[in-house]
Write a protein that binds this DNA or RNA. Structure first.
Length: 521
RNA sequence: GCGGGCGUAGCUCAGUGGUAGAGCGCCACCUUGCCAAGGUGGAUGUCGUGAGUUCGAAUCUCAUCGCCCGCUCCA
């Protein structure tokens, strides 16, 4: 997949700024310096995210007969995650080579014998620069000790690289020799000392019980509670295969390296479906779900041509998955995954059947067949999709006024159904009591149906631009015509201004609600 | 986790050892008959945090936290 990854860091910076300035997304714990990999949604961000989640739930659960919702616990039993393979699945001890920075599996390093030569530091003979860090090199039996000095010079020279000193000029302060047998603390490739092994476990753990002796994990994905409750859902809801269980909610991963704004966070929200089916239908349904999901992205304003579908080839998929599509979006920081549509067959039900000792078989009344259902898993990242919505919506437009002066208009072009605020309501003149009164009336009428925003600050043009910047698709202005001052025919009509075209039209107040509802749902 | 860059007002940034600033934004009032007009007044910072050096630190040193870029990782 030749990723013609085009990145635009300047654009991304502007988006991050706008998110903070207008209250979409803040860094968690910012006043204390910030918590790495965690983000808070401000008022507008919360509305946007809610719109996305509500639409996903509506389309996935409420408007389908074959998908049911659930909402599982975040705290997860250890046994569940042992069975699923998450415990132990990624907790390998890793060591880094101090010289080459290579990362090695500590438990796969072959045993070595030889002489370990320890150095306590290095300096430059003609200056007072010195480095006190400890370093060591393993010299195999029968080899020259001088090799160790060469390697150590290379190691210390890196610290002095910015001082323009060549490795030869470095004087090792002190060395100490130690005979070792069966050590695994050195890189077999170059003899360099390795860092102490560190566990890399991607799950967050917590303790509870009176003395905190009991272990639980914050779930690393929402899927496991669906698998564990699949039988209960089946037994309590009179459903037949194929059917799905959908869940939205928080998941947690101890990401080594959170990056790219909210894209890779330690705490994030998922929107997952497990679609249970007969083994014969799995591959076909995987393709059908892919299409279904692509349609969804179109409906929330992410155009098909900005999405890339990766058909993950054999050997690169998780071992239990028979088919995996990644749906990727062109973020300003590169083409990155929004959603995976996978076909993990009966892997999860199988491991939980084994782990719990409880049968997970399905009995088909019609065919009299008993089998372990397969599952198709469309798993979307909610926060990633919110970020994609913002990135996709962000636009800067150069306008030229009557005097020929250029002006940049910043607009978030959300599709109306995703927009945090659906309509702004302004009196043309805030000192006109009648206009203000009518505005408040309109606000009251619309508020039970959608998020509206009343504004009377500054000139009306400024209010339009303020709403452009947060993506409000429509603005209503109550003016002198509304009062019927010039032309009685225009009494009780308002100006409706469109965000994208900046065009205006006149609508009767009585028709506003239905006109808007048609466009914002 | 490694390497590099950066952290000063809500935002963008200037300020390199001697009284913390600008533009934009924000708030109030005036003005304003439809696209960031104008006027007047105003608020906002332990200069990311903590130590150290110094008579004196936004500025120098160290540590730490966070952000960005490149690696690495992403079961």
């Amino acid at each position: 997949m030749a990723n013609k990854d085009v990145t635009d860091p300047a654009r991304m910076e502007k988006i991050v700024s706008l998110c903070k300035r207008r209250g979409f997304i803040f860094q968690a714990g910012e006043i204390y310096g910030g918590l790495n990999g965690c983000w808070d949604y401000g008022p507008l961000g919360a509305e946007l995210k809610r719109n996305l989640k509500d639409y996903w739930w509506r389309k996935t659960v409420q408007e389908r007969d074959d998908v049911l919702g659930m909402d599982g616990a975040i705290l997860t039993m250890e046994q569940v995650l042992v069975a699923s393979g998450h415990v132990g699945g990624f907790s390998d001890p890793m060591s880094d080579c101090l010289l080459s920075k290579a990362r090695l599996r500590a438990d796969q390093i072959p045993e070595q014998d030889g002489t370990a030569v320890w150095f306590t530091g290095a300096g430059h003979p003609a200056s007072n620069w010195s480095i006190q860090r400890e370093f060591a090199v393993l010299v195999a039996p029968g080899k020259e000790i001088g090799e160790a000095h060469k390697t150590a010079r290379r190691y210390y020279s890196e610290f002095l690289a910015n001082k323009q000193i060549s490795p030869k000029e470095i004087e090792l302060v002190e060395d100490r020799r130690e005979e070792v047998i069966g050590t695994t603390r050195f890189n077999p490739d170059n003899g360099s000392l390795l860092t102490e092994p560190r566990q890399f476990n991607l799950m967050l753990q917590t303790n509870f019980g009176a003395t905190g002796e009991q272990i639980a994990y914050l779930r690393p994905e929402t899927a496991q509670s669906i698998f564990c409750q699949y039988k209960n859902v089946l037994d309590s809801n009179r459903v037949k295969l194929p059917f799905g269980i959908a869940q939205m909610g928080k998941s947690f991963r101890n990401e080594i390296n959170p990056r790219n704004f909210t894209f890779r966070s330690r705490e994030f929200e998922q929107m997952e479906i497990e679609y249970f089916c007969h083994p014969d239908d799995g591959l076909r349904l995987t393709d059908e779900w892919l299409e279904e999901r692509l349609k969804f992205y179109g409906e929330i304003g992410i155009p098909r041509e900005k999405l890339h579908i990766l058909d993950i080839p054999d050997g690169e998929r998780a071992f239990y998955s028979k088919k995996t599509y990644d749906i990727e979006y062109e973020f300003p920081f590169g083409i990155q995954e929004l959603e995976g549509v996978a076909y993990p067959t009966d892997y999860d039900l199988g491991v939980h059947e084994k782990g719990s000792g409880k049968s997970q078989l399905y009995f088909d009344e019609e065919t009299k067949e008993k089998f372990l259902p397969h599952v198709v898993e469309p798993s979307a990242g909610c926060d990633r999709t919110v970020l994609a919505l913002i990135c996709e919506a962000y636009d800067e437009e150069t306008l030229t006024d009557d005097k020929g002066k250029d002006d940049v208009r910043t607009v978030l072009r959300f599709v109306p159904r995703m927009a945090p605020i659906k309509v702004g309501i302004f009196p043309l003149l805030k000192k006109n009591e009648e206009q203000v009164r009518i505005c408040k009336e309109i606000q009251k009428t619309l508020q039970p149906w959608m998020n509206v925003y009343y504004d009377d600050g500054g000139a009306v043009g400024r209010r339009y631009r303020r709403q452009d910047e947060v993506g409000t698709p429509f603005c209503i202005t109550v003016d002198f015509d509304t009062l019927g001052e010039e032309n009685p025919d225009l009494k009780d009509t308002v100006t409706l201004r469109h965000r994208d075209s900046m065009e205006q039209e006149r609508l009767p107040i009585s028709g506003l609600l239905s006109w808007l509802l048609e466009r914002v749902r």
